[in-house]
Nucleic acid binder design. Structure first.
Lengths: 221, 221
DNA sequence: ACACTGTTCAAACGATTGTTTCCAACTGTT
DNA sequence: AACAGTTGGAAACAATCGTTTGAACAGTGT
């Protein structure tokens, strides 16, 4: 088998170690020694550790945004000539399918989700800002379609609910290994990622379609 | 005003810095200089940085478990003499009330939630293990009550759904500041923590009561 | 007065971090 | 074959990390 080139070996090793231990807890020496490349290679090829982290994300997110845009194009085309709005279930289904599809090619979904979870829980959130700036457009397109699919929801309410379910998905899938251990020993429940997605589906839909909250209690202190 | 003692000053400063920047990214020198105590004070009073982190959690979780046990006692007593089972909404309501109540006294709920989020997203999860071991009993008691409140759910399904909503709550409240910024500038929506809890209520209830997923791939091996 | 306790302090320890330097090895063009 | 430019590698860089040390300090009891 032909050895992958240095850049690829670094990325492959880095994403696994980052996912396992976090960014600050993973040293460049850790990565380079496990990847069998020289320590200086990271700074040579990527410039800095921070740039390496962003490169790891880009390798997942670039193909994801591409495919997701394509999938949304197709979805919109289907519903254009009959003039119907895309139902919420189809939107969520499309997103789920794309998320499952992308890393399945070469990388691991578990790693991808763990990285996303880390990015969002990251301290001052300069990673979250990077993701928001770099990939915010596809997210805005998605939310606009969700808006048309759920006209009964006030804009602010929909915004929060989308983040509620985002939390559910990222939290669950990024902590998958630990949760799976507990589930197996407590309930003899052997669950795959696809099982989990199947379990998530009705929960997410119900969450989005939940009744509106009662009117805000008297604000002001 | 009387200066709090050294231990308290360290804890007060540490929890804020940990919540802002994470555990690995916050150095002891950072904490001690801001708290106006000597660097060696941390190792003297707590033994190690890891022990300090656990102490920060204990200061939140110890009073929480105490009050939550008491609240559940009261709830069970109310429903004992009329023989009814405690409805899910009341269970969730009680938990929410306790969570809001505890840090309100002296510390910040935002900090508490951020710490919880960090603990769960933490790498190898030795913090999660610590929390699980130290405070697992109150969580098990709660899940057992939820079990009686939702007899129609298979055990495994309820387990996963509880973690789904746990993800929603922790993810949302721990990333509150960043999300609030976006919400305000995009929707002129000024939310307080209590607003968010009000918004969470119907979503969480609907998520727990969502229809069962379509037929399992292969349940019960 | 002394000894004993718990606490604070400045200084240093060894280890590890991200990054840079300098030279050898290689690649492709002339 | 000779050169120029790119890539690889071992070593060193300065900075920062958590932790330890030993002395000074303040009370308390005898």
């Amino acid at each position: 088998m032909a050895e992958p080139d240095t850049v690829t070996r670094i990325l492959d090793t880095a994403e696994v170690l980052f996912a396992e231990r976090g960014f600050a807890e993973t040293s460049l020496r850790n990565i380079t020694s496990k990847a069998n490349v020289n320590l200086a290679a990271v700074n040579y090829h990527f410039g800095s550790k921070k740039a390496l982290i962003q490169a790891v994300f880009a390798r997942y997110l670039d193909p994801f945004t591409l495919r997701f845009h394509a999938a949304l194009d197709e979805l919109e085309a289907q519903h254009r000539h009959d003039g119907s709005t895309i139902p919420l279930e189809e939107l969520l289904e499309t997103m789920a399918r794309t998320v499952l599809e992308v890393p399945a090619e070469r990388h691991s979904l578990k790693v991808f989700m763990r990285l996303l979870g880390l990015a969002y829980s990251q301290a001052q959130g300069h990673l979250r800002r990077y993701i928001q700036e770099q990939y915010g457009s596809v997210f805005r397109r998605f939310t606009e379609l969700v808006r048309r699919a759920t006209p009964e929801l006030p804009d602010a309410e929909r915004f929060w609910r989308l983040h509620f379910v985002l939390g559910t998905v990222i939290f669950t899938l990024s902590g998958l290994d630990a949760l799976r251990d507990i589930a197996e020993q407590d309930y003899q429940d052997h669950v795959s990622v696809r099982d989990l997605v199947r379990r998530l589906r009705p929960v997410v839909v119900s969450a989005m379609q939940a009744p509106l909250p009662e009117l805000p209690a008297q604000e002001a202190v």
